[in-house]
């Protein structure tokens, strides 16, 4: 597949049946444009071959592409069952048959008991399950999920992620999963497509992308610090970074003075964004106890250091 949305996106990728491709990248990078172009909702040039047919020449309704919207877009006037039955019925399946199929899909997504509810009576997680059921019930060859976990509570997102992973493993077509969450990309996906500024920055397996991010932007997305030294990229985890308020003594060769720019919760730890004096922004994870003890609030002058043994060096991909 190679497609161009003039002024917004230029992307190419190849995927086989059963592949789950995570699409990651910053906001405005073109992730949603890619998905909408494949679904036929945005005009695109190029070709996107699916079973030998160029999707881009087929109207949206005939593409057999399932799209799960970020905000679900469940039809508010229809019950969950009627939402899921909408696809089959639109393709001419008799009502009773479509309803039965819809209930079966809702059951697979674990929300069969909500079949009679309207979307506004569903929680975010429930609505997203119904939306996924609706997309799958239309029997797509290509499944597009546009940030399905966005806007959900962390707990809900975690359980939905596990379920989604199981359903995608059963799905025989190709899946594109747009996410801004590295966890989605690394746990669910078989491939990761990194989009940045309307271009593909990297395409590889989760292992390749997470261990050898091609750009420091990718690195930040997968939660790594990456520094360029000549033709080498040097990556290290924020958990490997030591934070001190005074210049550290000891064996760490890599040390940077700087100031805390931001502090945010990150799982059970706090993630510091530190603007170093010589330029690059680095991230460091510290325990809440350490943060309190050292008084790590924005503006605080700190020293970051990392042991050489924690740094992975690899050749930078040609840009």
């Amino acid at each position: 597949m190679r497609l161009t949305v003039p002024g917004r996106l230029e992307a190419g990728l190849t995927a086989a049946d059963g592949d789950v491709v995570a699409v990651i990248g910053p906001n405005g990078a073109g992730k949603s444009t890619l998905v909408r172009a494949l679904a036929g909702l945005v005009q695109a040039d190029g070709h996107a071959r699916l079973d030998g047919v160029n999707l881009l020449r087929v109207p949206a309704r005939d593409r057999h592409v399932g799209l799960v919207f970020q905000d679900q877009m469940l039809f508010p006037h229809l019950t969950a069952r009627d939402n899921v039955a909408f696809g089959p019925r639109a393709r001419g399946v008799p009502r009773a048959e479509a309803d039965a199929a819809a209930v079966a899909w809702l059951d697979r997504l674990g929300v069969a008991e909500l079949a009679g509810r309207r979307p506004r009576q569903l929680s975010g997680g429930q609505a997203q399950r119904v939306a996924i059921a609706r997309a799958l019930a239309a029997d797509p060859r290509l499944l597009l999920l546009d940030e399905p976990m966005a806007g959900l509570d962390v707990g809900v997102a975690t359980s939905l992620r596990l379920e989604l992973s199981a359903h995608l493993a059963e799905f025989t077509g190709v899946t594109l999963l747009v996410t801004h969450d590295a966890i989605d990309a690394l746990t669910i996906a078989s491939h990761v497509l990194v989009v940045d500024e309307g271009r593909v920055a990297q395409f590889g397996t989760p292992l390749e992308v997470s261990q050898q991010p091609a750009t420091d932007h990718v690195a930040r997305l997968v939660g790594l610090n990456v520094l360029r030294r000549g033709d080498l990229l040097r990556a290290f985890s924020p958990t490997a970074v030591t934070v001190d308020v005074q210049e550290p003594h000891g064996s760490a060769r890599n040390r940077w003075p700087g100031r805390v720019a931001a502090v945010s919760p990150h799982g059970g730890t706090l993630r510091l964004v530190v603007r170093t004096t010589d330029g690059p922004e680095l991230i460091a994870d510290v325990t809440p106890a350490a943060a309190t003890e050292l008084g790590l609030t924005p503006g605080r002058a700190v020293w970051l250091s990392v042991k050489e043994s924690s740094v992975r060096s690899y050749a930078a991909a040609p840009a």
């Binding site: 679904a39 036929g40 909702l41 109207p59 949206a60 309704r61 005939d62 593409r63 057999h64 592409v65 399932g66 799209l67 919207f69 877009m73 039809f75 909408f86 696809g87 639109a90 393709r91 609706r134 997309a135 239309a138």
Partner: peptide, 22 residues
Amino acid sequence: NPEYDAAAATLGASRWTGFRRV
């Protein structure tokens, strides 16, 4: 919201079906 029409189209609905049902 025209996004509902878009959702209907991705589910295989013709323009007429989308008009009538959404």
